[in-house]
Measured scan of single mutants.
Amino acid sequence: VSFKITLTSDPRLPYKVLSVPESTPFTAVLKFAAEEFKVPAATSAIITNDGIGINPAQTAGNVFLKHGSELRII
């Protein structure tokens, strides 16, 4: 599955597209996205474009099915 993750704390709204296997734990996606944007993973969260928080204790495939591919990291 592929996710387009936007960094909301930067006024330029940079984004990265990450492709991972469906079975990947979403905690790993969060950690990798945080490292890519050089923000601390421990204090970061991934939310939907509607501002709904995503529980990272599920697979990337589940997140994709529930929330789609466009996400934000805060």
Score class of each variant (00 low, 15 high):
residue 64 F to Q: 08
residue 63 V to H: 07
residue 15 Y to C: 09
residue 65 L to Y: 06
residue 60 A to V: 06
residue 25 P to Y: 13
residue 20 V to C: 10
residue 37 F to M: 03
residue 36 E to I: 06
residue 16 K to R: 13
residue 7 L to I: 04
residue 59 T to W: 03
residue 45 A to M: 12
residue 73 I to D: 01
residue 17 V to P: 15
residue 8 T to P: 14
residue 5 I to K: 00
residue 43 T to E: 15
residue 10 D to H: 07
residue 21 P to Y: 11
residue 11 P to F: 02
residue 51 G to H: 04
residue 42 A to M: 08
residue 72 R to M: 05
residue 63 V to A: 13
residue 45 A to E: 14
residue 51 G to W: 03
residue 23 S to W: 11
residue 26 F to E: 00
residue 19 S to N: 12
residue 59 T to G: 03
residue 45 A to D: 06
residue 56 P to D: 14
residue 47 I to Y: 12
residue 51 G to L: 03
residue 71 L to I: 00
residue 45 A to I: 03
residue 19 S to T: 11
residue 52 I to V: 14
residue 55 N to M: 09
residue 37 F to K: 01
residue 54 I to N: 01
residue 62 N to R: 10
residue 43 T to L: 11
residue 66 K to G: 07
residue 74 I to A: 13
residue 51 G to Q: 05
residue 42 A to D: 12
residue 20 V to L: 13
residue 53 G to L: 14
residue 18 L to F: 08
residue 53 G to F: 08
residue 49 N to T: 05
residue 7 L to E: 04
residue 31 K to L: 09
residue 33 A to F: 09
residue 66 K to R: 08
residue 13 L to V: 11
residue 40 P to K: 04
residue 18 L to K: 06
residue 45 A to K: 15
residue 10 D to R: 04
residue 56 P to N: 13
residue 1 V to H: 00
residue 20 V to I: 11
residue 6 T to E: 04
residue 63 V to C: 09
residue 39 V to Q: 09
residue 20 V to K: 01
residue 34 A to G: 03
residue 72 R to F: 06
residue 20 V to G: 01
residue 53 G to W: 09
residue 54 I to K: 00
residue 61 G to D: 06
residue 14 P to I: 10
residue 18 L to H: 08
residue 64 F to S: 06
residue 71 L to S: 01
residue 14 P to K: 08
residue 29 V to F: 08
residue 62 N to I: 07
residue 23 S to F: 10
residue 58 Q to L: 12
residue 67 H to F: 07
residue 54 I to Y: 01
residue 63 V to G: 02
residue 72 R to E: 10
residue 55 N to Q: 11
residue 73 I to G: 00
residue 54 I to V: 06
residue 35 E to M: 10
residue 13 L to Q: 12
residue 48 T to H: 03
residue 15 Y to N: 07
residue 26 F to T: 08
residue 4 K to F: 03
residue 47 I to R: 15
residue 32 F to V: 05
residue 5 I to S: 00
residue 49 N to F: 02
residue 43 T to A: 09
residue 47 I to K: 14
residue 16 K to L: 08
residue 41 A to N: 02
residue 59 T to N: 12
residue 10 D to G: 06
residue 68 G to M: 01
residue 71 L to G: 00
residue 36 E to C: 07
residue 73 I to R: 00
residue 6 T to L: 04
residue 5 I to P: 00
residue 39 V to M: 14
residue 73 I to K: 01
residue 53 G to C: 09
residue 49 N to I: 04
residue 11 P to S: 04
residue 11 P to L: 06
residue 33 A to M: 09
residue 45 A to H: 13
residue 26 F to Y: 04
residue 46 I to L: 13
residue 72 R to V: 06
residue 10 D to S: 07
residue 16 K to C: 12
residue 69 S to F: 14
residue 33 A to S: 10
residue 64 F to E: 04
residue 23 S to Y: 08
residue 36 E to Y: 10
residue 36 E to Q: 06
residue 9 S to R: 06
residue 33 A to N: 01
residue 10 D to C: 08
residue 72 R to P: 04
residue 59 T to K: 10
residue 39 V to S: 06
residue 47 I to M: 13
residue 57 A to S: 13
residue 43 T to P: 01
residue 26 F to L: 12
residue 39 V to C: 06
residue 16 K to S: 11
residue 40 P to A: 06
residue 70 E to S: 11
residue 41 A to I: 09
residue 74 I to P: 04
residue 49 N to M: 07
